[in-house]
Design a protein around this nucleic acid. Structure first.
Lengths: 164, 164
DNA sequence: TGCATCTAACAACTCAGTTGCATCTGGCGC
DNA sequence: GCGCCAGATGCAACTGAGTTGTTAGATGCA
């Protein structure tokens, strides 16, 4: 009858981990949030831990779904926490081709989010988006006269390492 | 009482041209549509003429609004015509940062839309998006191991020639 | 001109994201 | 440890872009 429920057997799913990977990132998330001047709340910890556990960008829906079992959070709160993470420089958002915002932790080594001037890669097979921090997006393009660029957004589409 | 109507006085608006520029592009639009195997209809002609008259990308709303006075077209029809223009290779669509699709005529000299491998420029002042057909988006970037790119999307943000 | 087929218009819907507001809570002062 | 309150959460309702289904109408060929 319902399409989204699933029997709670041991490992009936081959897609979603039984023990969410984000749980182990909770201490790390708490530490990062404490470093900001803002409050340490359950939703913030859970959402940040979730992002920390991923190697690709996640939509608000991905986050809400990942947290649904152990940390069910109102979808509006997920939106607001993700926006807050961007505001305080912990994460950045990426506009997808499907009109959905995706969020990803900023590279810690790049410190204080340098206007996230890095490239993104979207896999056309698994639909996941990755940050390519190693690909420089220097402004050494020759634009037609009159255009004064301030930011570059370099996006690749193709197949990722998981989808050979 | 209504918020969108406007007195029909001569030049009460300082934003929208009294005689739409797209009217002069109607013959050109008709010719282009006749070149396809599909039907020549009023909405297709009007929408295409509208796009032809612009030097920047237009959203469905921009198009519907531009045509509202002389060629009022149902918004669903605008969506379908724009999609059709993309399908037949006359135009291409650009994903904006505001979750809105924008459409622009393909450069005729680039013939048969080569997967629109060109750069785009979005003005942060006037919010308009332009195609930079002159900026090559060659795939000569060094990506991390495992990423096999098939397409590149290069997007600039800054100030356009109209917003010095 | 007649007719089969494609297209437009309308209404209703989906879905991501936002806003308003009442309630709750983290963290500070006492 | 207790109480307070600014700020955060949860809920409901909304917005706005885009889609789908269906019927009526226009196009173009015979």
């Amino acid at each position: 009858m319902k399409t989204t429920t699933r029997p709670a057997g041991p490992n009936t799913s081959n897609k979603i981990a039984v023990s969410p990977a984000y749980l182990s990132r909770i201490p790390e998330a708490e530490a990062a949030i404490r470093r900001t001047a803002d409050r340490l709340t359950q939703p913030r910890v859970a959402v940040l831990a979730c992002l920390l556990s991923l190697d690709h960008a996640a939509s608000h829906f991905d986050v809400a779904q990942a947290l649904a079992k152990h940390h069910p959070i109102d979808r509006v709160t997920v939106y607001r926490v993700l926006e807050w993470l961007v505001d305080v420089g912990i994460a950045h958002r990426i506009a997808g081709d499907d009109r959905v915002w995706r969020f990803m932790i900023n590279d810690p080594s790049a410190a204080i989010a340098p206007h996230h001037q890095h490239a993104h890669f979207t896999c056309t097979t698994c639909q996941q988006t990755f940050c390519l921090d190693d690909v420089p997006t220097k402004l050494n393009f020759k634009l037609p006269a009159g255009f004064k660029p301030a930011e570059v957004d370099l996006k690749f589409r193709g197949r990722c390492m998981h989808c050979d």
